[in-house]
Design a protein around this nucleic acid. Structure first.
Lengths: 110, 110
DNA sequence: CGGTATCCAAACTGATACTG
DNA sequence: CAGTATCAGTTTGGATACCG
């Protein structure tokens, strides 16, 4: 569970504590498109090792951002999706997206 | 100068490349209040070493987010402020702020 | 397939000392 | 005051091997 007493006073820092890691934001970005399997996620994110992806997903599960569903099949299937809290990060991702576009325009990318 | 060819295709990744570092966002947050001297910035951010703060400010200067002004005085005075591009991060900080507040409410009621 | 365990190199950090 | 230089200690990350 989430240890709310450990969260910083400043809301900005709270958010950073949860998603300042670059990979986490990219995981959210990709899961906003819908549920994904572990291997799909790994491919869609780009260059990320299995170890690091696993570690990030575990932490995000603990923080209540991501939901993990294991299917008792052979071969195994594990699906990841966003919780309501995770989905609420959409506005943050949108802000990052918009700013990134603006920045490219400012520095001169067509 | 900014190496625009090095920027990722995804605008979200572009933004992360520039400010995914926790300290950079806190620097922007604090400079949004106005120009600050090096030591003021260091105090307002919280626990950050001189070395790390310097490194972050240098990178942000290179990326066109922060402006550095040196006064030829004794003792020396160096003031940091946001460029227009840096100030435009206000919307991103706001999104992070709002989400952080919402998150606390969510985990608080649970 | 989706992990975990282990090893090792690289990166980051903190403390300290020194400078213009 | 606002840095730079240096070095030890810790953390992180990639590569590899193996398991349910």
């Amino acid at each position: 569970m989430v240890d709310i007493t450990a969260l910083p006073a400043c809301p900005v820092e709270t958010t950073l504590t949860l998603i300042s890691d670059k990979w986490k934001i990219l995981i959210v970005r990709d899961l906003l498109d819908g549920t994904k399997r572990f291997s799909e996620l790994r491919r869609s994110i780009g260059h990320i090792s299995q170890k690091v992806l696993t570690a990030n997903l575990r932490q995000m599960e603990t923080d209540g951002l991501v939901s993990r569903k294991v299917y008792a099949e052979v071969p195994p299937r594990v699906e990841y999706s966003l919780t309501d809290t995770g989905r609420s990060l959409q506005t943050v991702i949108d802000a990052l997206w918009d700013w990134g576009e603006q920045y490219k325009e400012r520095v001169g990318v067509a």
